[in-house]
Design a protein around this nucleic acid. Structure first.
Lengths: 333, 333
DNA sequence: TTGAAAGCGTTACCAA
DNA sequence: TTGGTAACGCTTTCAA
């Protein structure tokens, strides 16, 4: 049987409250008393029961992080940063996968109300604010990414500006026929829509016309799907002069396809990505991409979340994290 | 204020116990009563308090997954599988990062006793059984990977056999000077030691002598570290005929270095990895590697863990998950 | 099948 | 500075 505060109190010859005071260190405790209690805790190998503490305090010290697909390198880097920053601030992180399933996204927002979670960092894909029942009290939520939602704070990289800048960078190398991989077709994810919009803005600034034939849709943003989509495209279209992939994962799939077909990068086609995952720098050739600090994303998200826990009523806030176009070999010397 | 069982009971005109019975569905409840209760729950937007339930039941429904470095693609794939399988079985997953820090590994094993976690899946790097205090009651723990430990069940891929088989596969392509990247120097991780041992066994079987000059140590198993280590090596050594990298991440870093130096893969040197991460198939050239089913790793780990929760006393069990050498372009046609 | 009451381990209030 | 006591929300005996 595990020792409880009562056991510690009994052994130390004090009251449970005093033991609690020693642990939490807010109410002052005299030196000798503290010593007795600490010795008793050590002797009994006392470990506090977090369920009881959570019940009593109304806070569990746990936040949830929910991402659409945990298997991607991008998810790994975000997860790493969130867990690291959260740990520094004394939070534990519960991980959830939404599979870009709207039902799962809503379910999480309500499950968070089960009081095992004090807040939620959610990277939604489809979350539609109209579908969130008004009147239902939501837990503190911070959104990650492009999906906008009146009810929650948000941290993102300005996808429109970044995609425009990348398009401009590609144009600056003299390429005109710039294709995009992962673009929003009839309807796509918010990220696809915004990055496509940025691409369009970039084209306009370059004075290049928009051609539907340079828009390559891609269902999933994975290397597999990207490789299939690009292969199918190249079977019936000429090679574009540049290829802007909406994620690095897709770009890696694309590089593989191009290499297998003997299409030289960057000589025949320049390739760019988005996210600057760890492997981008070691792609063959090294991948030009939109880079941003994942740790900053994590710490801003956590800051918004904890502030929101303190003040549920304040106005919605949106934080844009800085990005940078990193030009590597894949877009030419 | 959030509704509790009492509120639901009052509105439905029943006792709290009946509400509990409706929720848990073990004790039978009459149709009309159940209906009344369900209606009351819906009306009050009732969500059970998991802290209270956890306190009462002594189980939280949460398991922890602890990995050395969450930022890697390998971690992402394991995490994805564990979260998926756990979710199917009704578990939540709390994520922890150990940074291959022994102190953190021990801390986790005791923190798990804080009753917010019913069990722990831990991928240790250095965990030394001699350092685990005897007599301290550990939570149910399943180890992931090569580190062996008498006190806990374990799931792994037989690294010795897999590394031997990979070495044989490389030898079969006619290459004799087979280097390894990530090898255990004076002292290394268990994974490094076992894979090096497998490599040695493979060499013996091939009738190839061991040369220290073909052992390339690498501090961290990341593409960065691998690129640096290989670059330094190539500055003062001839190009080997084959390069067996102890993870795919390292292999991707290696491919990049080789490409930058104009060393052709697989013509000048064959390259192989370990783990078969999603990007391996799309490396340039596609990477030969040791492949295994991450989902199977996850489900075996969860099976052992839940069985261990039921029976804390049974004998230690070790499950080896099948692997397969997948030969792709990086080791020749 | 349902109800009343006790108790899980912790912390906060109020007294001393 | 310290101690007693109540309460957090749930489930589970035991009785009806």
């Amino acid at each position: 049987m595990r020792a409880t505060v009562k056991d510690v109190a009994r052994l130390a010859g004090v009251s449970p409250k005093t033991v609690s005071n020693v642990m939490n260190g807010i109410v002052p405790v005299s030196g000798p008393t503290r010593f007795k209690v600490e010795q008793a805790m050590a002797e009994l190998d006392y470990v506090p029961n977090l369920s009881a503490r959570g019940l009593r305090n109304g806070r569990s010290g746990v936040i949830a992080l929910a991402l659409p697909d945990l298997a991607t390198a991008y998810s790994a880097e975000i997860t790493h940063s969130v867990v690291e920053v959260a740990h520094e601030q004394g939070w534990s992180v519960q991980l959830e996968e939404t599979g870009s399933d709207p039902a799962r996204e809503y379910e999480l927002m309500s499950r968070a109300r089960s009081n095992l979670i004090d807040g939620l960092i959610l990277n939604p894909v489809v979350l539609d604010e109209s579908a969130v029942k008004v009147g239902v009290s939501l837990p503190p939520v911070v959104l990650l990414g492009e999906v906008s939602q009146k009810l929650a704070d948000r941290v993102w990289v300005d996808s429109v500006a970044a995609a425009r800048d990348m398009t401009l960078a590609l144009g600056r190398t003299g390429r005109r026929r710039i294709a995009v991989l992962g673009a929003a077709g009839r309807r796509g994810s918010a990220a696809a829509v915004l990055r496509t919009r940025g691409y369009q803005a970039g084209l306009e600034e370059l004075g290049i016309a928009w051609y539907d034939s340079l828009i390559i849709p891609c269902e999933k943003w994975s290397p597999d799907a990207a490789a299939r989509a690009l292969s199918a495209y190249l079977d019936s279209n000429p090679v574009p002069e540049a290829l802007f992939c909406f994620t690095d994962s897709m770009a890696l799939g694309a590089l593989s396809v191009l290499w297998k077909r003997g299409i030289k990068v960057p000589d025949d086609v320049a390739v760019a990505g988005f996210d600057d995952i760890a492997h981008a720098k070691y792609a063959v050739p090294a991948l030009t991409t939109v880079s941003f600090d994942k740790r900053q994303v994590a710490s801003e998200a956590l800051r918004l979340l904890t502030e929101r826990m303190g003040n549920r009523e304040g106005p919605q806030r949106v934080v844009a994290v800085d990005y940078e176009i990193v030009e590597r070999e894949s877009t030419g010397p």
